[in-house]
Design a protein around this nucleic acid. Structure first.
Lengths: 355, 355
DNA sequence: AATTAGCACTCGACTCAATAGAGTGCTAAC
DNA sequence: GTTAGCACTCTATTGAGTCGAGTGCTAATT
């Protein structure tokens, strides 16, 4: 059956109302609040149709209707009006992004904080695993006698370090030499291209007998591992407790525990990243994680060239203010991109050259 | 009135039971479960005494008794039996600590995770503000043309970095020179002793006209600011939702929001740090933060010489398994100290020399 | 043919009284 | 000093009764 104009208007009215009130919407409410020029009886009939088509559901025989996942999907794709951010909201995004930050993960973290504050839902941010990172610099920094700091920087703005012990007899000049060799041989490589042959090469240049090779190599490995285990930042999870959906302790606990299992969130983000849209909306049961079947997730990814360097997502109840979140996401996207460009300077060009 | 032996035994029985069950304890329960050789009537009389003395309280006229803060305090100080960790628990602490970690905040973070897992309460970890930190090394690391990384390392094992833009014309040799000057002049200073005269001195050596001074100085300042804003790590906050004390959404939300205001937690830790005990127990109303008046907090601080470098705390309901938490804290303390010694090498000696 | 008024019916939410049960305090007996 | 016994208190639970929002269907209206 085709959704005629009147049905669409009624569906939209119901979903708009339900997003605001979280109460099942009855025919009389629709007739009263929205000037459709129809009596409640007519609307009642239309609602029965919409339910049969799967856009609405009824919690109990004698209650009003609530939107189904299919209903929300139609709403998001075709019905809802795009909303605009207030001046204050735009300001808070701008000012959060414009504060000097020089590490990517910090930037995303802060973006996530602002998103949860504006939307009043939970939000998350993550940097992807190592597979795509290109090393920009590897340096060995002297700290004190017997200690050196290994620093690894990637093109995506990730900076990691690792403190290692080295023989006290090593001279500063030697450290510089080793540092240069490592830097020379490793920079420009993606992480998964650092393999035994490359290390052999370094070994040859330094001299395998040198007792400084091993600690430095350990430090580099440690840094790379840190880059690999992409952390997920969460913010505003407690916001969710303000919604009637989570007014029951059992539900609330379930949700918060879910948020605590970072592996799962990573999986969520991975699944979504594989899609190609700028902004991605996953509604309720569309989510592959069953535990999330009554949440909706809106995500966006940030890239440098073709390399994904970060993801930000907002998690709310399926009854989410989709248009508001989309507006915030959109603006944030713009600002984060501006900031990333500042952060990485001309790196985009560099990468293209390497191809 | 003095607490005779029998009163003590009854008080202990009640508190032990209440910690387990979270239900008010009646006289009959005490008589039945604990072989005191007394009838419920006698125990009833003793309980009335204990209530009058302030060790017990009665939620309603006709209910059993629950311990008061004063009761818990007496229990903790004099009554409770020390408990021992299981082999598994000790193993999980050991293995968490023995994994190679080279930054202090990482170490504390992981310790906090393990504590919340073992105790099933919430836990927090924090590094203190800058006031006590001594700079161990300051280095300028070349990254690529036009970019340099400033790295600052303190004696407490804190490592911070900041990426800055420098003029593209700066030669690598110049960077090394600048790096050496900064390192020479700043290392060994506590952060609050870095002042204008010191900076003037550096300025003189580099030459105030040099366009590299300012960016590096900015980077150093940024690092120091990062050290200053001591972050608080939280873990296992959702554990608390498993306890009947938080079975009400409003209470749960209150608590979680409290945990989200890091400034408050910092205040809690600061207050407690000023006490001199190894392990510190704050029970319910003893806490200065009113919102925490039905939580108990057990904390311990870690020091290097006389400098506090970290705090770990466990937060639970006042009805907390004090002895278990204490046992875990104790063991963790030992292991963290071992690890800190490895991490900082001979730094303790160094500091003493400087005095 | 579409819309609407009207009405019987459903079902959750709320109120209120009754009841059960755990526990107390007090008195009198041991 | 201890204990058995009893009247009393207070909460939690249960079940009946009521209210109200909302539905689906039918018949009247446009």
């Amino acid at each position: 059956m085709f959704l005629d104009d009147r049905k669409k208007r009624i569906l939209q009215a119901i979903i708009d109302d339900y997003i605001n009130t979280a109460e099942p919407i009855g025919s009389r409410t629709v007739a009263r609040k929205h000037e459709l020029g129809l009596s409640s009886a007519t609307i009642r009939n239309e609602m029965a149709d919409l339910e049969e088509m799967g856009y609405l559901a009824q919690p109990h025989t004698s209650s009003g209707r609530i939107p189904s996942d299919k209903g929300y999907r139609f709403y998001v794709d075709q019905l809802m009006k795009s909303s605009e951010l207030t001046v204050e909201e735009m300001y808070s995004i701008r000012s959060a992004m414009e504060t000097r930050i020089n590490e990517l993960s910090q930037l995303l973290k802060r973006a996530s904080v602002v998103m949860s504050k504006i939307t009043r839902y939970a939000s998350m941010a993550a940097t992807p695993g190592k597979q795509n990172s290109v090393l920009k610099a590897v340096q060995v920094v002297p700290v004190e006698k017997g200690k050196a700091l290994i620093v690894v920087i990637t093109n995506a703005g990730i900076i990691k370090n690792s403190l290692v012990s080295i023989p006290e007899t090593v001279l500063p000049e030697c450290l510089i030499k080793v540092s240069n060799i490592f830097n020379e041989k490793l920079k420009g490589l993606t992480i998964d291209r650092i393999n035994l042959p490359v290390i052999r090469e370094i070994e040859l240049l330094i001299g395998s007998t040198s007792d400084i090779l091993l600690p430095v190599l350990n430090g580099v490995t440690d840094c790379i591992n840190q880059i690999d285990c992409s952390e997920v930042y969460l913010d505003g999870t407690t916001n969710m407790l303000n919604y009637p959906e989570f007014n029951d302790v059992v539900r609330a606990r379930e949700f918060l525990n879910l948020m605590d299992t970072k592996e799962l969130l990573n999986k969520v983000l991975d699944d979504i990243n594989n899609s190609s849209n700028y902004i991605n909306i996953t509604i309720g049961g569309e989510n592959k994680i069953v535990e999330m079947r009554d949440c909706s997730i809106i995500t966006t990814t940030y890239s440098l060239g073709e390399i994904v360097i970060g993801t930000i997502g907002v998690i709310g109840p399926t009854r989410m203010e989709y248009s508001k979140v989309l507006a915030a996401m959109d603006y944030m996207r713009k600002k984060v991109n501006e900031e990333i460009n500042k952060l990485t300077g001309k790196s985009t060009k560099d990468i293209k050259k390497n191809k």
